[in-house]
């Protein structure tokens, strides 16, 4: 797949915005064109946040996404809000740990994954946002796993030592994410 549009949504603190930036960095690693555009409320913490990410081999004219190839909904509110934004035949990755909402469309693919429960199996702290990026890569192959890991290493160079120390946890969460489908951890 040469082009992809992704919306990642959750509440503040779940790392939806960071996950989008990570995707963009990985896209830059592969020399692709990309845009990241955030949307959030006035709250400094806890409000609803989402970001729109485009990855393409060509110039990206619009950072705004009308309908997304993939939506990652990290909570119920995000699922309800963005289900209709998934392109026909597209993918909705749902964090079933935090969403009980029903699926209302039959023209898209749902991946129901209990991210928060799965995260308990990993070294703590584990990160569901990068787990979800792992799922996205496993499902679509839009970018190489190596590019994401390289991007994580690069990004950890420009953050505080405390955050940089979490790099191994991030990598573990991401790599675990890339095996979730294969391991059949997707719930029905």
């Amino acid at each position: 797949m040469a082009d992809m549009s992704v919306i990642i949504s959750g509440f503040g603190g779940q790392g939806a915005l960071f996950a989008g930036i990570l995707l963009c960095h990985a896209a830059v690693e592969e020399g692709k064109h990309t845009t990241w555009f955030p949307a959030y409320g006035a709250e400094m913490r806890g409000g609803a946040v989402n970001c729109s990410v485009n990855i393409s081999d060509c110039e990206v004219p619009s950072p705004i996404i009308d309908s997304a190839d993939v939506v990652i909904a990290l909570n119920e509110e995000s699922q309800v809000k963005f289900e209709k934004k998934v392109k026909k035949g597209g993918i909705l990755i749902v964090n079933s740990s935090l969403s009980q909402a029903a699926f209302t469309r039959d023209d898209i693919n749902y991946l129901k994954i209990p991210f928060n429960e799965l995260a308990q199996q990993l070294s703590q702290p584990a990160f569901i946002n990068v787990m979800a990026i792992g799922v996205l890569l496993e499902k679509t192959g839009i970018l190489k796993s190596d590019s994401v890991i390289k991007a994580m290493r690069e990004m950890s160079k420009n953050v505080s030592a405390k955050k940089a120390a979490l790099l191994p946890n991030n990598i573990e969460s991401f790599e675990f994410g890339t095996r979730i489908i294969k391991k059949q951890l997707v719930t029905a």
Binding site: V28, H33, T34, T35, W36, P38, P63
Partner: peptide, 9 residues
């Protein structure tokens, strides 16, 4: 604001 807030290469 969109341009201020968005990222791209």
């Amino acid at each position: 604001g969109m341009l201020g807030q968005m990222m791209e290469p």
